[in-house]
Design a binder for these strands. Sequence first.
DNA 1: GGATAATTTGACCGATTGGTAAACATTACA
DNA 2: TGTAATGTTTACCAATCGGTCAAATTATCC
Lengths: 225, 225
Amino acid sequence: MNFKGKQQPVTIPRAAKTLRRTRIQEEKEEQILEAALDVFSVSGFRGSTIDQIAEVARMSKPNLLYYFRTKEAMHRALIDRVLYTWLEPLRAFDAEGNPETEIRSYIRRKLEMARDFPRESRLFANEVLQGAPHIEDELKGPLKELVDEKAEVIRAWAKSGKIAKCDPYHLIFSIWSTTQHYADFDVQVRAVLGQEHSGEGRFEDAARFLEQLFIGGLRPDRLET
Amino acid sequence: MNFKGKQQPVTIPRAAKTLRRTRIQEEKEEQILEAALDVFSVSGFRGSTIDQIAEVARMSKPNLLYYFRTKEAMHRALIDRVLYTWLEPLRAFDAEGNPETEIRSYIRRKLEMARDFPRESRLFANEVLQGAPHIEDELKGPLKELVDEKAEVIRAWAKSGKIAKCDPYHLIFSIWSTTQHYADFDVQVRAVLGQEHSGEGRFEDAARFLEQLFIGGLRPDRLET
DNA sequence: GGATAATTTGACCGATTGGTAAACATTACA
DNA sequence: TGTAATGTTTACCAATCGGTCAAATTATCC
């Protein structure tokens, strides 16, 4: 649930000869990754500098490099920490549930994540946009497997007539893109909507529209051309 | 129609005291912008270097800087050249046309652009993702005005019952995001689809799905909740 | 409280960055 | 064909890049 929840010790400081992580290590690594997320999510890997991250983290550059040996290591640690949680909504997709409910709440969850964790969304967007040089394996491995599994669920729903016949992969892509759009292209959305519509209600407006679109678009009670 | 069609002289070389552009200027600027598109569309502004562009363009760095005084100038020229064409599909959206046909062909056109001009799509994606520091004015000005105008068209269609009642802005956003996704997140799409579905048919599959989704989702002949 | 390990820092390194100066080569045009 | 304007290149610059090092500081534990 929480993006900041650790799954694994991220790195072991090079100077550390003990295996246990100290309190200071926990705190500082947290502090660094938080800053790294700020910077990487805006400028991408190539466009970000260790100095920028150091400044945001309020540490000296050598101090950063004491905890993460290289810029790559910092990026790696960040990706690892965020990736698992990022896929949670899709994992929650339940084959036994009611199709309409499942799709509706998947959209909701993805939209909430775009609202609450835009930096995480942009981190991946930047990475993928630039050819995913650091996460290719994750895409072709765990991600593909998860999507394959859920696509099969959707295909079964379509086959049994619970939803309209459709390509499950492109359905998933379209849910990803429409929801993440609000995080990744936030500046554009704001610019186009202007101040009138950029406030509180934006999230609800988007949710309502997308549910209408997908629920309506997937209604089974109509012959498809 | 053609991305490479010039609208305006892009820059005037600093050394040029004449106002006319020579044949060499035309060719070299073309060559540079072509290379710049290659590089900027992958790495974004900050992550790209003049040396990279010079290498792709097969010119020496000072030679590049003879035509474009700074990295910013190159980026600026590129944006200017591409932006107008990029909005063409939306501009073609016809108030007098049949709603279903118009939406269908808007999706088609956007999808074709994602297929045929992925670099241009990524150029903007990178820019917007990183906070649109160089194109904020274009977003708040020309883009917003165009979208406002077309949103009004869609609203009128909804009001007269030709399509379902829906938020026209979020409809436009969702068409943008779903179509551009195939350019911007190409690596991910490929990774997930695997080799089986990544071939020729991908474009047609996506088009079919999106048309089904949007046409179905916007059918007026059903009371909305 | 002192020894030891963990942490932090300033000074520094070679490579790369965006950009310049000026000499040199080429082109266009009279 | 000469020459002035245009185009290209080599050598270079200061600033910044990712990263190292050794010395100084702080936390930990007996």
